[in-house]
Nucleic acid binder design. Structure first.
Lengths: 97, 97, 97, 97
DNA sequence: ACCGTGGTTAGCTTTC
DNA sequence: GAAAGCTAACCACGGT
């Protein structure tokens, strides 16, 4: 996922807020809502993934094996990314573009 | 999250596949790609959430407390859902439709 | 459960031990035995619980409903505990003792 | 664990009960309390086990390895038990005591 | 008797 | 380096 879903905090002038002990209730509520919204989406995706595994299983694939493959490929990806990063680091260290 | 992201499997006639030991390579690859795509989105969301906590912390909120609140609110939601379920169970347990 | 079952490690002078590669065989064996003893008790309790559900079922109760009730009551308990914890967090977050 | 903790149901004549829709509230409550009591003990034991692993770790043992050993020994135990049971079965099948 | 589902537990990641 | 939260594997139960 390249682009972030994080949106900057937007105060809502209409809304009543109680600031208790120096705590901005409005801002707090905003944080909570954004977090909970994202958590919901996250758990929705987890469900989707579960569905796909189930579909694959119904077709005869072994779920545990599938998970292993996914894990291994992820490790590969990360390894490659780190290697690339290291290369970039070296190149910038020696003044290469 | 109401709508599902799960799309039905779409065979691609152009793509070369090797079916080894009765295993459809094409189908397998499709499953893996869909899973990995969703996993990426999921981990993107996790990052977004982390960012929000960080932003809140930078503004002076105590992260641990925020997490606790999110947890409690989630428990509320779940408890309500399960209580409804319990009611249904009771009703079916006593033979009500 | 108020009191702990954990007993301090007691070396047994009589027992032969082999320390291989700097590993105290005697101590290792002691840990394993204590763990396995507690695991056995734990699984005994699980069996007892199963028996009670079976007894209730034989008397006409719907087991699934019972489980749901137990779950909900446990959620209540935990929620209360966590709410207390949250209060403490708030207080420490705003610098109160 | 050889002896069971399960006690027979004991009606308490003093206690007020509401029987709703043919459901004995008293009996229900009794079941719930017995279950919850055992659940608590069970979770107490789980904590004790955790403590022992922590103690072992503090002494330098690798917890993951310890868990593996416990698992393996448990499998051995069960295998042996099943073999014994099979032996008994055969023996009774051929009329041996 | 099997499958699917839900609960439990362990391992990993991240935080402090 | 310890502690906690999150995720994933395992297991056992109930239903079909």
């Amino acid at each position: 996922m390249a682009e972030s879903n994080v949106k900057p905090f937007q105060p809502n002038a209409e809304e009543k807020t109680q600031d208790t002990g120096g705590v901005s209730g409005q801002r707090l509520r905003s944080y909570l809502e954004r977090i909970e919204r994202l958590e919901e989406e996250k758990s929705g995706l987890a469900d989707d993934i579960k569905d796909i595994y189930a579909e694959a299983k119904a077709f005869g694939f072994d779920v545990k094996t599938l998970r292993q493959i996914v894990k291994l490929r992820k490790m590969d990806t990360e390894k490659r990314r780190e290697a690339d990063e290291l290369l970039d680091l070296y190149m910038s260290a020696i003044g290469m573009e």
